[in-house]
Design a protein around this nucleic acid. Structure first.
Lengths: 251, 251
DNA sequence: CGTAAACCCTCACGTTACGTGAGGGTCAAG
DNA sequence: CTTGACCCTCACGTAACGTGAGGGTTTACG
């Protein structure tokens, strides 16, 4: 099945001209042309387009998107996970903005002026220019998510089983200590938290304590990840997050 | 207290050049200049800037923002409420996009392809071009929020008390019927729902049944509004919303 | 009191991501 | 076989600034 420009434009929120533009710049070159020179988009082209649109929605410039999607080891799953992260970040950003509005409404009702810094604080985090660097930082020096995709590609089924078992040992250990009433600062819990970090570091991508802390926060903030741990024991995601943060602090 | 361009740029996520630009186009003209011709921004200017930034964040073009803020009867509170609405809409949009990603990840895992329409459906709602019209539509023919601001400006304290009492009668009536076990399709409940609409229509802005339905949905979707009703009786927001939707359907 | 660093101003041209025709083939329907 | 709906390739237009160029102003400090 293949689609012409107008069919794609009807399906996705993108103009015909934009498709021409993406073709010209090499961002999305249709995988074939008809005899008459008509652009024909395949299903795979549409998947690529979807990713482009997600990135665009997130405020990335087209050449940056181009770069991201050209990186060696880039794959759809890694990109989707990254986009998911960024989107949920953006969502909490929006909630913060809503809070700022509520605050503005309150102070407005009372006839008093708002603190100037609070007025704009909420915008700060989503500076598009700053964003690129921040992404690099958050995902590690050499783009952790790319690195991860690169490494995991070579893993065999046995590798995956081993990694899963290693992980299960840590998770079960944590769950047991939690049930035994230990706090997140418990010595054994701390050892397991550090082991958790090292597993990521060994198996997926270089993971500093700082990055690990970021992950920890994500485990509770992001239901998709929280579920992974809370399914083992309710409250485990929060417990692990606390433990990670304590482990990260002792630097 | 007044601020120079760089001070404003440090406070808010806006470049010096952008401030120049806003000045040139008349969107934000600083309320004074120093002897040397330096732009000096007052507190009021900063409030205006904050609003501009919210609108910009929402994807409005600068000339549209200019228009919105120039409309007669435009005031800060009305604008903030409108922005709040649009932001929370945007937030649920993002959550929908996250769901789409989850779906894409699932189908990807299973090695099957996703429905092409589902792939892009989620983007559709936030077409910036379409948005302007939609806003007009949602807020009524003559910009309900502007109309509301215009009318309420003339209200005296007594007007407000009367309106509040009128409203309380309806809300208490609804709460009583709900407690008595009536469903949202109960005859008396329907009468009260319609009265609720008429009160808005009389006191604030022309409110069609369709618009009323939009409001009803907002009462449950938006915690700020839900609270107003749930504080009277838990579950009342949902109850009212259901009643409104039923009332709206019989057109 | 001078002077350098740090700001500010006004042009004015550059850039990104398309919009919007102009001029001209292509294709299915009647 | 023609008409209307698509498609193509230029190519210039536009919005919202970015990025100097050239030149005053303010402030800190020696």
């Amino acid at each position: 099945m293949s689609y012409t420009v107008s069919q794609v434009a009807a399906l996705a929120p993108v103009s015909v001209r934009a498709l021409h533009h993406y073709d010209e710049t090499g961002l999305l070159v249709p995988s074939s042309r008809s005899d008459a020179g008509y652009r024909l988009y395949s299903d795979a082209d549409l998947e690529r387009l979807q990713q482009i649109l997600f990135f665009r929605e997130l405020g990335f410039a087209l050449d940056v998107i181009s770069g991201l999607m050209r990186e060696p080891g880039h794959d759809r799953e890694a990109a989707l996970l990254m986009q998911r992260e960024l989107l949920s970040e953006r969502a909490s950003q929006l909630h913060a903005m809503i809070n700022t509005i509520d605050q503005a409404l309150d102070t407005h009702d009372k006839g008093i002026a708002m603190n100037k810094e609070d007025m704009f604080e909420v915008f700060g985090n989503f500076d598009p220019a700053k964003h690129e660097e921040e992404v690099k930082e958050r995902w590690g020096d050499s783009d952790a998510y790319v690195e991860s995709a690169r490494r995991t590609k070579k893993y065999t089924k046995e590798d995956w089983l081993r990694i899963k078992d290693e992980g299960a040992v840590v998770v079960e250990g944590l769950a047991a200590r939690m049930e035994a009433g230990a706090g997140p600062d418990d010595e054994e819990v701390q050892r397991l938290a550090e082991e958790h970090r090292l597993q990521i570091d060994r198996n997926f991508y270089p993971c500093s304590k700082q990055m690990h802390a970021g992950l920890g926060r994500m485990y509770v903030a992001d239901p998709r990840f929280a579920k992974t741990y809370d399914n083992v024991r309710p409250g485990l995601a929060q417990f692990l997050c606390d433990a990670i943060l304590i482990n990260a602090e002792e630097s």
